[in-house]
Amino acid sequence: MERPEAPEGAVWAEHVAPDGYTHRVLARGTVFRLANPEGGACAHVLLHHVDQPWERLNVADTVKVQWNAYGGHLLLSDQGRVLASVESESGYDALCGTTPKGRDMFVRAAAKHGLGKRDLPPSLSFFQGARVRPDGSLHFTGPAGDVVTLRAELPLVVLIANTAHPLDPDGACTRLEVTAWRDQPTGPDDPLWTATPEGRRAFENTHEYLSARGSA
């Protein structure tokens, strides 16, 4: 497949075929964009902190700390820090995870970063999702959204599997486009830093870690 058009200086530009996967190490501050050009992609995503991959995406803390199951602006690690900030009009699915096919792709992508099955926590998906009825039952909501933009707030291993949502009755998806370019991490002057007290404390924890480590 041809590479997608990417901005000048892009560090990553790739089409991910249906039932394909990709992975990359991204520097802090890198912006990465997931696009859904044919409308049927389902991007299953895992994030690990590249310095210490036992610190990784925690979907439970992500939904709990932001008080919402369907979306938020921060993707949080289990250490109370911000792995990535996110702009997504269609939110994300933090409840349903992936399929056995998606998991198999995560296993292989993780292996290429020296990570094994124990390193694979619950995942997040974009562009396809589900909603919860009052009795707790789940219903699949189908495709939604064209673009999701993420910003690495720590240096990351990014794992992406493009495969059908686990509740999708058709079990099919279309290609996904990934592009990334160098940019700046969120800073104290950005509105997002202080948008919520919980988020501000997550950015403070992230800054404190980076300062002590000598990389802020």
């Binding site: 925690n58 979907v59 439970a60 803390d61 939904v63 709990k64 700390v65 199951a69 949080l76 289990d78 250490q79 109370g80 820090r81 933090a94 409840l95 707790g136 919980e198 404390r201 997550a202 403070e204 924890n205």
Partner: peptide, 29 residues
């Protein structure tokens, strides 16, 4: 009925939800 989406409390997530002063408190993690 019982929950399985809320996860476990941790010292670290307590700092986010309830403030940095709660870090010394015991937690499920």
């Amino acid at each position: 009925r019982h929950d399985t989406i809320g996860g476990a409390c941790s010292k670290e997530s307590n700092t986010l939800r309830y403030g940095h002063h709660t870090r010394p408190q015991h937690a499920c993690v």
